[in-house]
Nucleic acid binder design. Sequence first.
DNA 1: CTGATGTGTCAGTCATAACAGAAGTATCAG
DNA 2: CTGATACTTCTGTTATGACTGACACATCAG
Lengths: 190, 190
Amino acid sequence: MTDTSESTIEPLPAPVEKFILHWGDMGNHWGVNRSIAQIHALLYLSDGPLTAERIAARLGIARSGVSNSLRELVNWKLIRRVPMRGDRRDHFEAETDLWEVVKRIAEGRKAREVDPARAALKECVAAAEADPDVDGTAMTRLADMMAFIETMNSWYEQMLTLPKTSWVALISLGSQVVRALRPGGGSRPQ
Amino acid sequence: MTDTSESTIEPLPAPVEKFILHWGDMGNHWGVNRSIAQIHALLYLSDGPLTAERIAARLGIARSGVSNSLRELVNWKLIRRVPMRGDRRDHFEAETDLWEVVKRIAEGRKAREVDPARAALKECVAAAEADPDVDGTAMTRLADMMAFIETMNSWYEQMLTLPKTSWVALISLGSQVVRALRPGGGSRPQ
DNA sequence: CTGATGTGTCAGTCATAACAGAAGTATCAG
DNA sequence: CTGATACTTCTGTTATGACTGACACATCAG
């Protein structure tokens, strides 16, 4: 027996619990299931690495669910397995660099959903070009869509190559550009 | 009777149907229900404004669902009501400027989900500061999270004020910056 | 005023996905 | 080798929300 808690629910400080609940709900609206987001939030706020058992106890969810969720989180590289000396159990800790977190999430989503959609769109455009039933408007719109997605894609890929520090620089640069452009620096308002 | 189609399903060109299906699926993974995304895709590819009845016929879904979905889409300003001379029925057409589309979606999501989460986070930080049960690590992480969200928020708000043309300029500017920074322009690689 | 047409609302049904608990597998101490 | 511990996988249950079809309301022509 490593700990006193066997199947009881360990209480959490109220603000921490509130954060975890909100974070889980947020993830839920964003296509990430609640448990995964909650576990990530818990690990993010935790002092040190936690075991699956502790996580289950603190969140009040089944160990099996914790196991599955942890695997997902490791796949997304949002948490790490941390071996602890003298303890056979797996411990987990969260990535704490939030820039890294959003980057990883964006990477995952892009690879899983955006890239396939992009490929499908390419096929649609190709098929539409060869299909006399597709009218000119649809053809134009499909092409517009593809051009747009490609622009966003290449922009994103370039951003990925940047280190975090450059991101920060870019954002503040963006602010300056905004400030410079706001008074009417050469672009029409619409 | 305005048209020959009463309750039959109107066929769609294969590439168009494929696009609509993929788009709907995409939206589904992103927290938008499938019907809404499909209707938007259909309108986006349509030559002219469509009635609710036609949409239902072409997508093979119930008129009631179309009615609800159209209301949502109008609320999000992704489609417009278009009155047609000599026709009592409402016609709808999609916003075709894709920059506008992503902007509207982002605005909606921010207002509905990010802003409330931001407010909740603020409360959490405030409550945590007054709570002795919250350890230093959790306190630091919550503060980090808040700072991060605030940075992203103000950046986003500034971006919103920009016209589309400036967006394009910014993105290409970003590309130049990326190119300039890539060889090692002064930032550590990590 | 009245019938017809279009639109919005509602309650019931159904599909999907997350979850819990149990069973199975692997690893380690003694 | 054997028992115990940690972890994973599997299956049945449950809850959420999307969809349908029926109903109610509004609007317009005659």
